[in-house]
Design a protein around this nucleic acid. Structure first.
Lengths: 248, 248
DNA sequence: TAGTCCCACTAACCTAGGTAATAGCGCCCC
DNA sequence: GGGGCGCTATTACCTAGGTTAGTGGGACTA
């Protein structure tokens, strides 16, 4: 195995995630496999991409967790997305000239790189696979919209619960969750930056969730104790993740 | 003119918007023109699409203004996007199974419809045009991210100013703005739903902007009095709109 | 085995923005 | 030409969540 292992893990997870939405024929799977050129490792805290850069590759996550974020001039930070195994973190960088945000590793991370020429080749040769990759960026946008709704119009409690629900379902889609738990190896401060609240209030709110006995979060693992309860607090409806197998 | 007028207005505005990012050859322009089948009118307040429906066409705006929004069970509403002339409101509905939000007309609106089969045909025959349409949805996502940053981490003042900046620039791109003004025909309550604040606070904040003499908003027209001032209050940097002409 | 981080957690106090209720004003429509 | 009606504006009061300034514990380090 050696060098081929991260390739396999990441690409098969991507294929698995896409296959939930439509069948991927073997030639398209192979096109994906041969578009990846190499893997790269990052330590926790490293930036994979910095704002305003013009990357020439897009990165698929093979292990670990990353965040996309923006820094505001006063030093505040807003995380706009979390990504895990099988997520194409900056696929949009293929068509956007310069990235409007940075991406940093929340844990140790391994990614697989896809040169933009290889992606362009896919768009020239494989229309259906192109639609599936396009879909993958549309799902990211749908998640952005859910975050907007949560941050704009719901309480800290709801936002927190909603995010846990989303991460639980997404981890499950790539085989990283058990029936009632999933890895969530970040700090309360990072979570605060994603939810648009202060770290202190994240702590307060977590205690309330713990007191209500709907979930626990220790040692980087979230355990769901009462799934309907969390969903209801978070007003979570997984429809936006569009997990439906059909021709696209 | 007659029936062909909205087609022309909408499609030429779309072409203009895309052409800012890369050259669109004549055959691709014609492919777009022939993919549109008919226009439709909506009165202010009508829903163009309701949440969870499965549309079989995508709509390009020919005139008027629409909002994408989600309703939360407690009745609160969050607007996640505004769209004007030349915007493909629900292009993502082409690949997503069911829409995760509703779309409603804020003014009288005319749209041009593109059947999903016609869009699929484009993806099969015109790889470059496909990338450009994909890009158009990526720009929507980039705007979502900016809204997330604004709503999550900035004051009501900044959010308001940021939104005005964004709308001013976007209106300019399709020829709807003058040097220092643009149409913004919505109510303070609708604006509140986009910014994630209350209508009362929108009013308070507008007065503050007026007092600082950076902009005015009367009769559905926003007049920018001090462009650097508005940009600085809104921490606005148009880079995320990716207005750069290059091969994509 | 003491020293130093980093992170979860706590407490006291503070403020941006929410809520409710109401007034005024233009516009349309009989 | 008067009566709704939708929108802006205003006031008084309230609260979710922010801020600041800590404590305590676990893990690596010397």
């Amino acid at each position: 195995m050696g060098i081929s292992e991260p390739f396999d893990a990441a690409i098969e997870a991507l294929i698995r995630r896409l296959s939930l939405r439509d069948h991927l024929p073997e030639d398209e799977r192979n096109a994906l496999r041969s578009a990846a050129v190499r893997s790269r490792n990052f330590a926790a805290g490293d930036d994979l991409v910095v704002q305003n850069s013009k990357p020439s590759v897009s990165m698929l996550i093979a292990s670990g967790m990353v965040a996309r974020y923006n820094i505001i001039d006063d030093g505040a930070r807003q995380i706009t997305a979390f990504h895990i195994l099988g997520d194409f973190v900056d696929l949009h960088g293929f068509l956007l000239s310069r990235l409007d945000h940075s991406i940093s590793a929340l844990t140790e991370v391994t990614v697989v790189e896809f040169p933009h020429e290889a992606l362009e080749h896919i768009t020239e040769q494989y229309p259906h696979l192109t639609r599936m990759l396009w879909l993958s960026t549309l799902l990211d946008a749908a998640i952005h919209r859910q975050w907007l709704v949560a941050i704009g119009r719901t309480s800290a409690m709801s936002r927190l619960a909603h995010l846990f629900c989303e991460q639980f379902v997404r981890a499950g889609l790539v085989g990283l969750a058990t029936q009632d738990s999933f890895p969530f190896p970040i700090t309360q401060a990072q979570l605060a930056d994603a939810l648009g609240i202060s770290p202190v209030h994240v702590n307060r709110t977590l205690q309330e969730l713990r007191a209500r006995a709907v979930l626990e979060w220790h040692g980087g693992i979230v355990s769901i104790l009462d799934w309907p309860g969390v969903q209801s607090i978070g007003k979570f409806d997984e429809a936006f993740l569009d997990i439906e197998h059909r021709r696209r």
